[in-house]
Design a protein around this nucleic acid. Structure first.
Length: 590
RNA sequence: GGAGCCGUGGUGUAGUGGCCUAACAUGCCUGCCUGUCACGCAGGAGAUCGCGAGUUCGACUCUCGUCGGCUCCGCCA
């Protein structure tokens, strides 16, 4: 009876179709039964249209329509007509017309859904995830995935136009010692041995450069067995890119052009190019973060010279021990209740700061627990340095440099959020460059690569590698959007001896290096072009573009914070037979 | 590994020692209704208050544990 091919999309019917016969296929959004007349809102992914069932309609259509319920799947044949005078619905894209049903076929019934198939439903996320197929029917979720599709299409088209080839790399890889915890996959054929799911296609894409592919990209699934966050899932997607014969200056403009296209063609946002470029040092100094949100001010200000002469031992001792003292000015906060101030102290505690000093610039003068340690002149200079006005509060943290940056950097974001200082609809894209190549890991008592161990040092810093490794800057860059790290990359090491030096700096013995990365080192000896690239977090990009607050909303079937899938109930126990084949014996605590 | 918040009919919430034989809204079911679009009106069904211990004469309510969810620190680019 139903000819699927003659279908028309519900949301696209307009006055111009009036008089046409149409075939609608979709879901019952809602039925309004007036006894003698039944209205049904028919939904497909294009939108809604109102269908009218009249008792006079041919056949048993009206009786069938009385049986319709939410989410029944139906086929409706009927005539488009303009709505009678006064019944036009301006809130509906198709509100000027309706479809007068002539035949109705119920293709499938449906249980009553646990929640409305509507935008902005107020329902627990657990319920949404359990019934994800229903959640994904909601228009706002469909929009997210349409945008996601568009973005990857733009990426593919753009990169293709620039000569990039899309090449797949293995999902079953060799486990590597650095970086995140690997997801391991047991081997049936090799008892006791394991593959690792890729944390990223890093090594293979570099080998593709050795292979002469010159320009590669991949929309690659990556896996990291670490704890989850609002913007972190154990499996996520990267746009992974690598190019041969490039330096930083060649890479960044191409990426900027691609991002500009994406913003333009998805949300109509123009991105001014070239993008702002901050060095790591400047980002840390001004914003206390290597992914600064530059949509608002409240920058961090060094006050070491002004407090060095005070009698406040917390500040002076910190400075004497090589620490730093910095402050920020929170505008209009002078009326903040004591409880909220105490909360802020606790807030900075979580980032390792032992305390949070403050100076309230009230209407009746200065109030501060630390005022007594400063002369009037010192106090004036402090206020002036931070640009404090009457009605503001000045906050200070004194600690190790990293703690000061971390605590004040986060306090800055927290305050801006509370004070509503972050402008909506603004997209601040910028590069952060000149990252340190290495940092010192206190718990492991060794250097670790800040980006990853294949990142090249800056040429002018190369001599420092042997003498002051922590001073060496890397040819690495991150792209930051509204305080979120969107992607990052580097120019890579392409010579075996530099790579070996890097391995030894991070504490890998020659044997370990050969065991773990010998294949890469070997490849490097067969004519490796200079190369570099980067990877974008696709999920995070989509989050920003669709204005979503967590990554689960832009992944069709995400995991919960405890890394389970509420829909499919993964992970789950497996049979003894499966384990036996894999040569695995479990050690269940139960 | 740690901190905080949450868990009451299908859904969202109220109730915070006895007034609860658990309330409201919505959804669901039945009937009526020819211009609704969050249709309306009338009636009805639906919850051992996540689970388990404990305190108490008495626990949805307090305590402890446990399970699940969320946010964050550590971890992770």
């Amino acid at each position: 009876m139903t000819v699927f091919a003659e279908r028309i999309e519900a949301g696209k019917i307009g006055i111009q179709q009036a008089g046409n016969k149409v075939r609608l296929l979709g879901w019952v959004q809602r039925r309004r039964d007036h006894g003698g007349l039944i209205f049904v809102d028919l939904r497909d992914r294009s939108g809604l249209v109102q269908v009218v069932f009249d008792p006079e309609m041919p056949g048993n259509g009206f009786a069938l329509a009385e049986r319709l319920r939410s989410e029944f799947v139906v086929s409706i044949y009927g005539t488009v007509r303009t709505r009678p005078e006064g019944t036009v619905n301006k809130n509906l894209a198709t509100g000027a017309i309706e479809v007068a049903a002539e035949t109705l076929e119920i293709l499938n019934g449906a249980l009553t859904p646990p929640f409305y198939i509507l935008d902005n439903v107020d329902v627990d996320e657990t319920v949404r995830l359990k019934h994800r197929y229903l959640d994904l029917r909601r228009p706002e979720m469909q929009n997210v995935f349409q945008t996601r599709h568009r973005v990857t299409q733009i990426m593919r088209n753009y990169l293709d136009s620039k000569g990039f080839w899309e090449i797949e790399t293995p999902m079953l890889q060799k486990s590597s010692p650095e970086g995140a915890r690997d997801f391991l996959v047991p081997s049936r054929i090799h008892p006791g041995e394991f593959y690792a799911l890729p944390q990223s296609p890093q090594i293979f894409k570099q080998i593709l450069m050795v292979s002469g592919m010159e320009k590669y990209f991949q929309i690659a699934r990556c896996f990291r067995d670490e704890d989850l966050r609002a913007d972190r899932q154990p499996e996520f997607t990267q746009l992974d890119i690598e190019m041969s014969f490039v330096e930083i200056a060649d890479i960044l403009p191409i990426m900027e052009e691609m991002l500009a296209k994406i913003f333009e063609e998805t949300i109509g946002q123009t991105i001014a190019r070239p993008l702002l470029c901050l060095t790591y040092r400047e980002a840390m100094e001004r914003f206390g973060s290597d992914k600064p949100d530059t949509r608002f001010g409240m920058e961090l200000v060094d006050v070491a010279d002004l407090v060095a002469g005070s009698s406040f031992k917390v500040f002076t001792d910190t400075l004497a021990n090589g620490g730093r003292v910095k402050g920020i000015c929170a505008p209009g906060c002078a009326g903040m209740p004591r409880r909220e101030l105490d909360d802020l102290v606790k807030y900075v505690n979580t980032y390792g700061a032992k305390g949070l000093a403050y100076i309230v610039l009230g209407a009746e003068g200065i109030k501060s627990p630390i005022a007594k340690f400063f002369s009037e002149e010192q106090m004036d200079l402090l206020i002036k340095r931070l640009g404090g006005q009457s009605g503001d509060i000045l906050f200070f943290v004194a600690d190790k440099p990293q703690v000061v940056a971390d605590a004040l950097g986060h306090l800055r974001l927290e305050l801006a959020q509370r004070l509503g200082l972050i402008p909506e609809g603004q997209f601040n894209l910028l590069w952060v460059t000149e990252f340190p190549l290495l940092e010192y890991d206190e718990t492991e008592k060794r250097y670790v690569a800040m980006h990853h161990m294949f990142t090249a040092p800056m040429d002018e810093d190369l001599p420092l590698l042997a003498t002051e490794p922590l001073q060496v800057r890397a040819k690495a860059y991150d792209i930051v959007l509204n305080g979120m790290e969107l992607g990052g990359g580097s120019v890579r090491i392409h010579r075996r001896e530099v790579q070996e030096q890097m391995f030894s700096l991070i504490g890998l013995t020659k044997e370990e290096a050969v065991d773990k990365f010998g294949y890469l080192l070997d490849a490097f000896e067969y004519g490796t072009p200079p190369h570099g690239g980067l990877a974008f977090g696709l999920d995070r990009l989509i989050m920003l573009l669709t204005n979503r607050e967590n990554i689960r909303d832009v992944i069709a079937f995400p995991k919960t914070q405890s890394a389970s899938c509420l829909l499919s109930h993964a992970p789950s126990a497996v049979s003894d037979k499966q384990l036996k084949e894999l040569h695995i014996r479990t050690n269940n605590p139960s």
